[in-house]
Amino acid sequence: MSEPILYLRNANVYQKNFLVLSHVNMNLEKGEFYYLIGKTGSGKSSLLKILYGDIPLLEGQGKVVDIDLVSLKDSEISTLRRKLGIVFQDFQLLTDRSVEKNLLFVLKATGWKDKYAINERIEEVLQSVGMATKKHKMPHELSGGEQQRVAIARALLNHPALILADEPTGNLDPETSNEIMLLLKGIAQQNHCTILMATHDYSMIKNFPAKTIKCENGKIYHGDSNDLFI
Score class of each variant (00 low, 15 high):
Thr40Ala: 06
Phe88Leu: 13
Thr79Tyr: 07
Ile187Lys: 06
Asn25Cys: 07
Asp90Pro: 04
Ala161Val: 03
Ala188Thr: 13
Lys108His: 05
Thr133Met: 15
Tyr14Ser: 13
Met26Gly: 01
Gln89Ala: 12
Ile50Tyr: 02
Val64Leu: 07
Gly144Glu: 08
Asn207Thr: 00
Tyr35Met: 10
Gln61Tyr: 06
Gly53Phe: 14
Ser143Thr: 11
Asp166Asn: 14
Asp96Cys: 06
Val106His: 00
Leu172Asn: 08
Asp66Ala: 14
Ala198Asn: 02
Glu76Thr: 01
Asn217Phe: 11
His140Thr: 10
Asp96Arg: 12
Ser75Lys: 15
Ile37Gly: 05
Phe18Asp: 14
Asp54Gly: 10
Val64Pro: 03
Leu57Phe: 03
Ile230Lys: 15
Leu57Gly: 09
Phe208Glu: 07
Ala153His: 09
Ile195Leu: 15
Gln147Asp: 08
Gly38Lys: 12
Ile213Asn: 02
Gly144Ala: 02
Gln148Ala: 05
Ala161Asn: 11
Lys108Tyr: 08
Asn207Ile: 00
Pro209Ser: 15
Tyr221Met: 02
Gln15Glu: 11
Phe18Ala: 06
Leu58Arg: 10
Glu100Met: 00
His23Cys: 04
Leu57Thr: 04
Lys39Gly: 10
Gly60Leu: 08
Val150Gly: 14
Phe105Lys: 03
Ile220Met: 07
Asp90Gly: 09
Asn27Ser: 14
Leu72Cys: 06
Leu126Asp: 10
Ile50Trp: 00
Asn226His: 11
Leu182Gly: 15
Glu32Ser: 02
Val129Asp: 06
Glu3Ile: 05
Leu84His: 12
Met197Leu: 15
Lys185Arg: 13
Lys185Thr: 08
